[in-house]
């Protein structure tokens, strides 16, 4: 099993993006998917960073792919998707409509925002050229294992969501703009004020969700720290770490140490808790009764 770094879900300043990918080039990650997955309006602010980041990552020996948007609606977003196909890099589709723009003979990766729930869906995508699929985070371990068996037979690498706030929903509406009483078209890019998303609590002060522009994420950071053995047994080929603010490369090395057996799951959990004491953890989608559940707490 190795490490994939997913596209940054949040809206960071160009300098932050630059420093982030420079550090990633030196990290233990095997591959990096980058690009804008949440909102096309953010792209002009940081797209100039992408070629440099790609170059540095490739020079460091990483596999690199570019992501499509997670929700493609506007004409310019469809054009943007078509343009992605000419960048000379593998594409990770996170909205199925990107397939309509993808040349028939082109290999591609499938991201966690595409619904791959069963054998037939995986077989269809493999036939179309998919070589790597990150499964939707909602899937339980039994389904992951079943899909790994099919992936193995088809030569498709199967990934699971390994670390990060869970992408639970995406919408045509922007909740960040709504919170600021602005229309989506006049959002003034307020999602940039919350580089790990804006927290949403219940009326009883339970930490619950975070809003990230048009996306809604879990408040908890999902982690497979306690599930590595189970994932290895299931045949998972990579775990995906989702960028967050802070010394992310230290998190990457924590997961790398766990994969190589240098540290235990509990050691990794301690490392995560030290990274940010306010971070609440979950792994309920894989093995629990519901997504927000955390196995280490239950035991």
């Amino acid at each position: 099993m190795d490490l994939t770094i997913g596209p940054n879900q949040f809206f960071w300043q160009a300098e932050q993006q630059r420093a982030f990918y420079a550090a990633l080039a030196e990290s233990d990650a095997t591959r990096v998917v980058l690009g804008e997955v949440v909102c096309s309006k953010r792209l002009p602010f940081w797209q100039a960073e992408i070629p440099q980041a790609v170059e540095a990552l490739l020079a460091a020996g990483k596999e690199v792919a570019l992501t499509s948007l997670g929700l493609i609606t506007l004409k310019r977003e469809r054009k943007l998707t078509a343009d992605l196909m000419d960048m000379g890099l593998p594409i990770e589709i996170n909205d199925l409509s990107a397939l309509q723009k993808l040349p028939q003979d082109r290999e591609f990766w499938v991201g966690p925002l595409v619904n791959v729930y069963n054998d037939s869906a995986l077989r269809f995508l493999a036939r179309r050229g998919a070589t790597r699929v990150c499964l939707p985070p909602e899937l339980p371990i039994e389904a992951v294992a079943a899909l790994c068996r099919v992936g193995d037979e088809l030569g498709v690498a199967v990934e699971v969501w390994g670390h990060g706030r869970l992408p639970l929903a995406i919408s045509g509406r922007c909740y960040h703009a709504r919170l600021h009483d602005r229309a989506k078209d006049n959002c003034q890019f307020v999602c940039g004020e919350d580089p790990d998303g804006r927290e949403v609590e219940t009326l009883d002060d339970q930490k619950f969700l975070v809003v990230n522009g048009v996306q809604t994420l879990s408040h908890s950071t999902a982690t497979v720290a306690m599930q590595i053995t189970a994932l290895q047994e299931a045949g998972v080929s990579a775990i995906r770490l989702s960028p967050q603010i802070g010394a992310f490369d230290s998190l990457v090395s924590g997961y790398a140490d766990r994969l190589s057996g240098k540290i235990s799951g509990q050691d990794l959990v301690s490392k995560l808790e030290a990274f940010d004491p306010a971070m609440d953890l979950s792994d309920g989608f894989l093995t629990g009764a519901f997504g927000a559940e955390w196995s280490a707490e239950a035991s």
Partner: peptide, 8 residues
């Protein structure tokens, strides 16, 4: 494309 319900 929504797993809010299963999260809770």
């Amino acid at each position: 494309r929504c797993s809010l319900s299963s999260y809770a």
